[in-house]
Amino acid sequence: MEFTVDFNKEQIESIEDILQKELIDLGVQSVILMDLAGNVIVNLDSGEADHDVFSLAALAAGNYGAVSAMANIIGEQEFSLLFHKGEEESIHFSKVADDLLLLTIFNKNVSLGFLRLKVAEAVKRIKTVI
């Protein structure tokens, strides 16, 4: 059997620490670091959310894959902003590495601009530990 991005315990702890400080502490409801097969690597939340993260990850992997394939068809490498806005909650997708995706779920108390800034910061820091 092959294994995808095989992180050790220390790496996972560093990633959790980054996601906690950069995102959760600033009011983001929950974050999922996942691979494109739909596996959940790290999942953190602020305690208010009780989402079904495994189903979310499976759907997000499919959604992200479908959107990337659409980008390719129209001649784009990828779309830089992937974001679904709801009345109360929104979901933001960010590619971390080839096979890694960061999913952020946040409510209307957090602005999209601020969130994007923080996600970019978190992604930059995650890249240094993987």
């Binding site: 092959e2 294994f3 995808t4 315990k9 996972i12 691979d35 097969a37 596996n39 959940v40 690597i41």
Partner: peptide
């Protein structure tokens, strides 16, 4: 590509 999480001691397998 199963995923092993050594911290949670959890493995995800895709069938």
């Amino acid at each position: 590509m199963a995923l092993i999480n050594p911290k949670k001691r959890e493995v995800q397998v895709k069938i």
